[in-house]
């Protein structure tokens, strides 16, 4: 308690809170879920076939973006995009990455829920991107 400002509110200095945030990040980084995610992301970056499949899908998706927004893409174009997406998702490195991301997401949500329950403020809602 020596580094706390002991006023009526028992306010802690910002440095103490940020250190607690860094300790939390350190603990999260040590979890098997985070390490598996890092490894899966690295494998995906190094997998040329998966990268090509991803680029092909993203490029076609981008070229069709306006037509898709207007719901005006032809059936052939829609089928082609779906085929490219399936080829991308079928790459083992992509599947492994998505699974690792899902596992990491689960513990991040649980940890954020704990922070929200303790503070009475929704951590993810306060910090996350705004929904549509």
């Amino acid at each position: 308690m020596t580094d706390l400002t002991l006023n009526e509110l028992e306010v802690a200095p910002p440095s103490v809170i940020l250190q607690a945030a860094r300790d939390f990040a350190g603990a999260l980084a040590e979890t098997p879920q985070f390490q598996a995610f890092e490894e899966a992301a690295e494998r995906l970056r190094r997998d040329e076939a998966a990268q090509r499949a991803m680029q092909a899908y993203q490029a076609r998706q981008q070229s069709l973006q306006m037509m898709l927004m207007l719901n005006a893409a032809s059936a052939e174009e829609g089928a082609e995009l779906k085929r490219l997406q399936q080829a991308f998702l079928a790459a083992p490195a992509v599947a492994a990455y998505l699974q690792a991301q899902e596992d990491l997401t689960a513990i991040c949500r649980a940890a954020a829920d704990l922070l929200s329950q303790h503070t009475g403020l929704s951590f993810a809602a306060a910090c996350g991107p705004g929904c549509c």
């Binding site: 706390l4 509110l9 028992e10 306010v11 802690a12 910002p14 103490v16 809170i17 607690a20 945030a21 300790d23 939390f24 350190g26 603990a27 999260l28 040590e30 979890t31 513990i107 940890a111 704990l114 922070l115 329950q117 303790h118 503070t119």
Partner: peptide
């Protein structure tokens, strides 16, 4: 370890 760190952070946040 993560639980302990999350609880410690939550406790500190109450003093922010």
């Amino acid at each position: 370890n993560l639980l302990a760190a999350a609880e410690a952070l939550a406790e500190q946040l109450l003093h922010a």
